[in-house]
Amino acid sequence: MTIRPLLECSRLSFERDDWPVFAGVSFVVEEGDILQITGANGAGKTTLLRMLSTTLSPSEGRILWQGRPLSECLAEYRSDCLYLGHQPGVKTALTPRENLHWLLAVHPRHADRIDHALSQVGLFRHADSPCGSLSAGQLRRVALARLYLSEARLWILDEPFTAIDRAGVGELETLMDNHAARGGAVVVTTHQPLTLSPKQLDLEPYGRCIA
């Protein structure tokens, strides 16, 4: 039996209003991989991640999930991947607990561990105060709490370290490392150097990419 890579992207390109954002991006994500996507501002990192999250579809190229095209296993793929975008998807009028509750209902996971997850990200004391009164970093931590609850195999994280303090970055890196060690995979964009020594993919505007 051959082991297929989790995610296989070949010659992805994306055009916005007839302008190419990037072209010919190919890479493979295997179990246990942490792939860091780097590139200048505007190189298309977020676009690429939104494509992996299935919000966008590539103008050209194809994405295979465990050897099958995404269009054939969309629901399965969506329940197996966790995407945290630029906008964390946290309602400021709700409390962290309420936010996690609906997010977990929409992405069914272990909902009974919300307390555990909130204390992991250091928000247990604020679990029942409205998110509008939290700082930017704490707001981001509400979204990151989902990582402690998720059973998704592929994590797609867009700038997860934004507004997170140094201790938080360390914890997050440990979390990613543990996830990879359990056979999961992480695709992450960040400008911060990671201590994990991940695989790198450098996006160049309009250019070729070296994986």
Binding site: E76, S79, Q87, L103
Partner: peptide
């Protein structure tokens, strides 16, 4: 509108549930 702006809509669209239910 507010769901679109704060990213909740994206999270709903990526749900393994059908979007029309939500």
């Amino acid at each position: 509108l507010s769901d679109f702006r704060d990213g909740s809509l994206e999270q709903m669209a990526l749900s393994s549930e059908s979007l029309w239910v939500l």
